[in-house]
Write a protein that binds this DNA or RNA. Structure first.
Lengths: 227, 227
DNA sequence: TTACTTATTAACCGTTTGGTTAAACTATTT
DNA sequence: AAATAGTTTAACCAAACGGTTAATAAGTAA
């Protein structure tokens, strides 16, 4: 029998703190900060409510921990992913696949993040400073320039990300409107959408250079991204 | 001095009920159902809290009124817009412009709707029945077929709508990350985006027929849209 | 004016909520 | 074993909340 110093592992192999974080993540992402109840989180974690305040001082502190963790799970993906692959097209493909996978696993995430971002825009400022993403727009521009893309890379990136995330964020509407409340049909649609979006990206990249339709080539306002 | 029977107009030319609805709309869209307080709504309307319960019986009833109104403002736009113009490309252009205008006017709307939709997916089912949108997917398909588009029209439509809405829904993130917290730069980006999205649509329509990249032409799962 | 209906308010009520406390339980140290 | 530090709980608390009530004010009809 070994002695455990820092944290003792509970019955199911999880620290109490870990159990709290898992439960809080579940409840907060579903109900949001305002809709979540501390008692619900305690029940979900199978512990006493006072323990929540013992580990995290207040509801807001606990929420902040969850929000930060969830936020970082989302945003820096592009951050990391943009350096990993040499082939530009393959990189875009990977991004689509990665985001589809992520959102598929936890469908509440997008609307949770979007909503809480609006509720506390100040916290985002702070989070973006902690993760060092201030260089991201510059790197994004360089990456696109090297690939010979002339247009505003933000337009393309936003189209890509929104294209993946939005169907999940709007699922409760799309489900009865387009998919007859059939989960399998929805899943198949998402499968098709991955291909659709990859193809969409390729079309844009290929055509953009040789085409006469000019989209504000001198995008002079791209450098104003101070923090 | 005229006599008023049905509803007397208050000092500022608005019925009390109208003042309540306006105030509730403002508070609910910003704070959400769970985050909104009846007292805040009463304050915003400049009336006593009990009046809220006098006109609408409960918080949920009041919320439902706002949610329905807001929801209908959004969804049936495509519904109406899809019949108005003969020219298919012009119609898509109009849709983009219309949605940009709408969301620009009330930036909280997208994240509010997306979030509350997740919170009560059951209510959406009911709302979709009231608005008669059951025919919409069929009409959408027909409209696209007539224009000679072979791919799944839902993919294209979703790309369009998400492309417009998402930048506003994610504005608190994009603002410091891409636009240096400068509202004017953001506005200019949205202007550019309208053009970008219109161009994007045209590219897809033009190329899709003559291209060898085949995106699941036999979209057999499109007809399963019962309600 | 009188009677009556509708609109509006201040005060109140029961419940829920985030948070605290003091005691009990568990492990580690001496 | 005794003392100590860390963990967990039941019970409690004040504030906030949605909702009610009883009384008042305002408009309408006779």
């Amino acid at each position: 029998m070994e002695t455990m110093k820092e944290q003792q592992t509970a019955n199911d192999g999880l620290t109490t703190e870990e159990k709290i974080l898992a439960a809080a993540g579940k409840v907060f992402t579903r109900k949001g900060m305002a809709g979540a109840r501390m008692q619900d989180i305690a029940n979900e974690a199978g512990i006493n409510k006072a323990l929540l305040h013992y580990y995290f001082r207040s509801k807001e502190k606990l929420f902040d921990a969850i929000f930060e963790k969830t936020f970082q799970q989302f945003v820096p993906l592009m951050h990391l992913e943009f350096d990993s692959t040499d082939d530009f097209r393959q990189m875009l493909r990977n991004m689509v696949r990665l985001y589809v996978m992520m959102v598929k696993k936890s469908p509440y995430l997008p609307s949770f993040l979007l909503n809480e971002m609006h509720q506390n825009p100040d916290k985002i400022q702070h989070l973006l400073l902690k993760m060092n993403v201030s260089e991201f727009p510059k790197r994004l521009q360089i990456r696109f320039s090297e690939a010979g893309i002339t247009g505003d890379p933000r337009q393309l990136l936003l189209t890509l990300i929104s294209g993946v995330i939005f169907p999940f964020a709007a699922k409760p509407l799309l489900m009865p409107l387009f998919f007859g409340n059939n989960e399998k049909i929805f899943d198949r649609f998402i499968e098709d959408r991955s291909v659709f979006l990859e193809d969409l990206m390729l079309r844009m990249l290929v055509n953009r250079e040789e085409d006469d339709i000019n989209l504000d080539s001198d995008n002079s306002n791209f450098n104003n991204n101070a923090l």
